[in-house]
Simulated assay, not measured.
Amino acid sequence: MEISCTETVPSSAMPIIPLAGGRMPGMWMAAALIATYFALQAVAAGLFVLVLGVAARFGNGWHAVDGAMAATLAQPAMQALLVLLSLGVAAPLTLLLAHRRWPQLWSLARPPGFGFTPPRRPLLLVLAVAVGLVIPVLGGLLTQLLAQGHAVTQDIQQIGSRTPLALRIPLVLLVVSVGPVVEELLFRGVLLSALLQRWRVGWAIAISSLTFALVHLPGLQYQWYALPNLILLATALAWLRLRSDSIWPSILAHGTNNLLAVVAWFVAINLPG
């Protein structure tokens, strides 16, 4: 089966791509996989909390469960463990589901492939690092302008800033590596490929970027003025993906962005007060 990508992908990604079996990501499957990823995190976290509740039950009786669970989860170290556990469970399962569903798309450089191939030009990896460093600065200025003096916080930043050093290291490693790999697969791989089958490049990038921003809104504590920053980041990541014929530059830029965002966790360790 041959699939024509005419007018759905940029000029550098317009050849006819033969796919064995013809299975490609559709809009519903892309949405379902994204929802599954976040649902898996919630389920893993919920099961962890349930285990804590059962342990409290055997120690002090059912009447002490709510108080014990609340006190335990209020501890910064426990919150970090919850993030590590939930992401550690959801990420590999999501990658496995995507690979089992579309095994032939992983090694295809151009959409509808997911681009797990070397970029066309190695220099694009350097550009990706630059994007990952510049976008947080520009996006941060934009967010502060829109916030008009309101504090801008993220759940993960609050958890990281109060977490002991021993747990900050694995938390940062997860946030700058595993998280970007899965999210780039979901949004710049599966979703963008699905959108490019129906929409022109500009609309596909815009829709995928807006979706990326909206699904992160709960982690931003529903601070709407932080959305333009995420949209700007997602747009740059989508451009890198299509420009390089590879998903690795967007993963690298995403990880660099996250690394820059969490450097403050370590700076906060020795700050007075």
Rank of each mutant, 00 (worst) to 15 (best):
96 L>M: 15
138 L>H: 03
70 A>F: 05
203 W>R: 12
258 N>G: 09
151 A>S: 14
57 R>N: 15
225 Y>D: 08
226 A>F: 03
193 S>E: 01
199 W>S: 11
66 D>F: 13
256 T>K: 05
229 N>A: 14
265 W>V: 05
261 A>E: 03
202 G>F: 00
99 H>I: 05
137 V>Q: 12
238 A>L: 06
140 G>V: 06
114 F>Y: 03
131 V>Y: 04
249 P>Y: 01
131 V>S: 03
225 Y>S: 15
222 Y>G: 11
191 L>Q: 01
38 F>V: 09
198 R>D: 13
252 L>A: 08
229 N>K: 10
270 N>R: 08
171 L>K: 02
81 L>K: 10
230 L>A: 13
26 G>K: 05
46 G>Q: 04
80 A>I: 02
18 P>K: 10
271 L>N: 10
5 C>I: 12
248 W>G: 04
140 G>I: 02
23 R>W: 06
249 P>N: 03
230 L>N: 10
103 P>R: 06
167 L>F: 01
198 R>P: 12
97 L>H: 04
157 Q>A: 15
21 G>H: 02
179 G>W: 07
130 A>Y: 07
159 I>D: 09
195 L>V: 09
4 S>Q: 14
231 I>Q: 05
35 A>T: 05
98 A>V: 05
49 V>A: 10
97 L>T: 02
143 T>E: 11
2 E>L: 14
222 Y>Q: 12
80 A>K: 02
216 H>C: 07
200 R>T: 08
71 A>F: 02
179 G>M: 08
57 R>S: 14
25 P>M: 13
11 S>L: 15
153 T>V: 09
202 G>P: 07
208 S>D: 05
98 A>N: 06
230 L>Y: 07
256 T>D: 06
136 P>A: 07
37 Y>E: 06
222 Y>T: 06
123 L>A: 15
149 G>Q: 04
19 L>V: 15
105 L>G: 12
204 A>T: 01
137 V>P: 08
49 V>N: 01
140 G>D: 09
259 L>D: 02
157 Q>C: 11
172 V>R: 03
230 L>D: 07
174 L>S: 13
27 M>P: 03
25 P>L: 11
178 V>L: 15
16 I>K: 11
7 E>R: 14
39 A>E: 02
249 P>Q: 00
224 W>K: 05
259 L>N: 00
120 R>A: 15
185 L>T: 01
165 L>N: 11
90 A>Q: 00
20 A>M: 11
101 R>I: 09
213 A>H: 00
76 P>G: 07
241 R>T: 00
137 V>F: 05
166 A>K: 04
174 L>R: 08
208 S>W: 08
108 L>D: 06
20 A>G: 14
124 L>P: 07
208 S>Y: 00
138 L>G: 15
43 V>C: 11
6 T>I: 12
44 A>S: 06
102 W>P: 06
258 N>V: 04
135 I>P: 01
205 I>Q: 06
222 Y>R: 08
148 Q>W: 04
146 L>W: 00
60 N>E: 13
41 Q>A: 08
192 L>P: 10
88 G>T: 01
180 P>W: 01
74 A>M: 00
138 L>D: 09
142 L>F: 07
140 G>C: 09
187 F>V: 11
53 G>F: 00
83 V>N: 10
161 S>C: 12
134 V>F: 08
138 L>P: 03
13 A>Y: 08
45 A>N: 09
